[in-house]
Design a binder for these strands. Structure first.
Length: 572
RNA sequence: CGGGGCGUAGCUCAGCCUGGUAGAGCACACGGUUCGGGACCGUGUGGUCGGAGGUUCAAAUCCUCUCGCCCCGACCA
């Protein structure tokens, strides 16, 4: 491909709305172009990279025994009503009507469609297991799209769905997908980790996320040197340090303490001469069907996802001040479990292990001191509600946990029968009994993975593509296009590389050398062949690597061979 | 949805406070000098100042409404 014909428009400056490096660099390199919030055009260079990733994904999916198909992006509401998600999904689901006023949605995911496809054809355990995948554009009307391709509304995703007649079979497919994902990300040159994850609204029993570690990641993950890793939403820890001994004598029953205007644990603790760990932090939350109260130790934070799961809720949020008032008869900051009725109370084990504690009195400007869990109140449920902190002991080995940030590039789930059951996707087992199929689903964000690759592979000058994702492996840079001898030499190298099957871009533009060098660095071709006047006079060209900047002079005749070798070595 | 910010040339922005002929750099076109790391000089093209309404002799500038975009939060296979 010749640069002059390649539709490449680089930007000298960062677009005004770009926040993270991947967005800035991909926009400047002329790979993507924003059309609307969270909606992007892949320009030719960007599309080539996407295509590279897709090929890798297809190879690994095929290797793992999955079969490709393509489902519609527009889906009828009926299917979503069958699974129940038409009602469970919020505004994130883009709903539309056709000219007959029939309801449709733009698919944010395809469990319903694939389940329908399979249920109408497969009816025997002999036809299982199955694993089907597609690479397709999806749309989720995110509340807040941001960070370019990292959180778009319209985005490309590979999604695979497997169907089984036994948990063992599902497990096999799950492991195969896990391995395929590792191979995919490794082939892309990404440094990543797989962590345990919450299953969210998709549902299911087991779930792992593939995280590319990066400062700009939107997800918090905890990791231990022993190999334990989990999304912070899901992470557990060993027992945190016990609260310090209670100062003074244990009162026979809770006593009121006047704490005017003191609403935070830290303030009240300081005022009463107690440690924050002596407190029971009491939070009122609201789910789609009830109010509930969560209790964690004063020095801990609430993990809302854990609470949501403990309550069996789909949506959960902290109650507004007005609703807190209604539930506790007090302003925010004075809630406590003692004497609180009419709502379910869920306590973290850390709260129950306090021998004595202080907490809100459900009365403005008062706290209770000397509260004994189990004596003065009894929660309806005790469950892990604690948000894991850095330095907490690892739940497996006890060593201190690390807190990192990651970009979620893949997510795999064991769905079980969450879709097959309501949608009647069943098979006859070897005893002639009808059973719902056991399902798994496996997502991989294409655009997000590309963005993550840029986050991990760039420098001051631009992108440093890992060779497998580079839009072109090699650029031939003609420094003096006006000199016929140089042009002929560059043309020769270009043609030889092309004939050799190397993906090469020839910068034949009538531009100054500096402009071409800057563009080459920005776009980030792993290998560069510079053809210029001085070299050509000696029959030499310069070959350099983007990643480490190393250069070498080789003869014109050798150039193609050397480049092929470098490409074969991975361009690094 | 709550809080904050921004919409002026293709791009990045100044001008707005304090109303009075719409600007710069880059890009683009032409001429010349340059030519291995985003060249220089000259000339030129290009703008319903996001939109609607209002105040005023006069609005990019002040007021109201509206749309879009960005950031923080809540939210999220």
């Amino acid at each position: 491909m010749r640069f002059s014909q390649a539709f490449i428009f680089t930007l000298r400056e960062n677009p005004q709305d770009a926040e993270v490096v991947s967005h800035k660099l991909m926009a400047r390199a002329g790979m993507i172009d924003k059309l609307a919030a969270g909606i992007y055009t892949y320009l030719p260079l960007g599309w080539r990279t996407v295509d590279k990733l897709c090929r890798i994904v297809r190879e690994e999916m095929d290797r793992a025994g999955a079969v490709e198909l393509a489902m519609p992006c527009i889906q009828p509401a009926e299917l979503w009503q069958e699974s129940g998600r038409w009602y469970a999904y919020g505004k994130e689901l883009l709903r539309l009507k056709d000219r007959h006023e029939r309801d449709f949605c733009f698919g944010p995911t395809h469990e319903e469609v694939i389940t329908d496809v399979v249920r109408r054809r497969v009816n025997s355990y002999r036809q299982l297991p199955l694993n089907l995948y597609q690479i397709q554009t999806k749309f989720r009307d995110e509340i807040r799209p941001r960070f370019g391709l990292m959180r778009g509304r319209e985005f490309l995703m590979k999604d695979a769905y497997s169907f089984h007649s036994s948990a063992e079979s599902l497990d096999e497919a799950y492991r195969a997908m896990e391995e395929a994902y590792c191979r995919i990300f490794a082939r892309c040159g990404l440094s990543f980790t797989a962590v345990e994850a919450d299953t969210g609204n998709i549902g299911g029993s087991e779930s792992h996320e593939f995280m590319v570690l990066a400062e700009t990641g939107e997800d918090a993950v905890v990791a231990c040197t022993c190999g334990y890793g989990a999304n912070r939403e899901k992470a557990t820890s060993g027992p945190p340090p016990a609260a310090p001994p209670w100062p003074g004598a244990l009162p026979p029953r809770p006593e009121l303490a006047h704490t005017p205007g003191l609403t935070s644990v830290a303030e009240v603790a300081a005022f009463l001469g107690l440690h924050p760990a002596h407190f029971i932090k009491t939070m009122v939350v609201e789910t789609e069907r009830e109010f509930a109260v969560a209790l964690v130790r004063g020095d801990d934070e609430l993990n809302e996802v854990k609470l949501k799961n403990a309550l069996g809720a789909i949506h959960l949020q902290l109650a507004s001040a007005e609703k807190v008032q209604r539930v506790t008869n007090a302003a925010v900051g004075f809630a406590g479990p003692v004497g609180l009725g009419g709502v379910r109370i869920v306590a973290d084990p850390g709260v129950m292990s306090l021998s004595v504690a202080a907490t809100g009195a459900n009365r403005d400007d008062y706290h209770l001191v000397g509260v004994v869990p189990g004596r003065d109140f009894t929660p309806h449920l005790v469950a892990d509600l604690r948000l894991v902190q850095a330095q907490d002991p690892c739940p497996r080995c006890g060593k201190p946990l690390e807190l990192k940030r990651g970009i979620e590039v893949g997510h795999i789930f064991k769905l079980g029968t969450k879709y097959s059951e309501p949608m009647g996707c069943t098979y006859l087992d070897d005893k002639g009994q009808q059973q719902p199929m056991i399902m798994g689903c496996y997502g991989l964000g294409i655009g997000r993975t590309v963005a993550a690759a840029v986050e991990q592979n760039h420098d001051e000058a631009g992108i440093c593509w890992p060779l497998p994702l580079a839009p072109f492996a090699v650029e031939v840079l003609n420094v003096n296009p006006d000199l016929p001898g140089v042009a002929a030499a560059a043309e020769r190298v270009y043609q030889e590389l092309r004939s050799a099957g190397v993906e090469v871009l020839y910068d034949d533009r009538d531009e100054r050398g500096g402009v071409k060098f800057k563009d080459a660095d920005l776009i980030g071709f792993p290998v560069r062949v510079v053809v210029g006047k001085k070299g050509v006079e000696r029959g030499q060209v310069e070959i350099s690597l983007r990643r480490d900047g190393t250069r070498r002079e080789v003869s014109l005749a050798e150039a193609c061979g050397v480049v092929q070798e470098l490409v074969a070595q991975g361009g690094a």
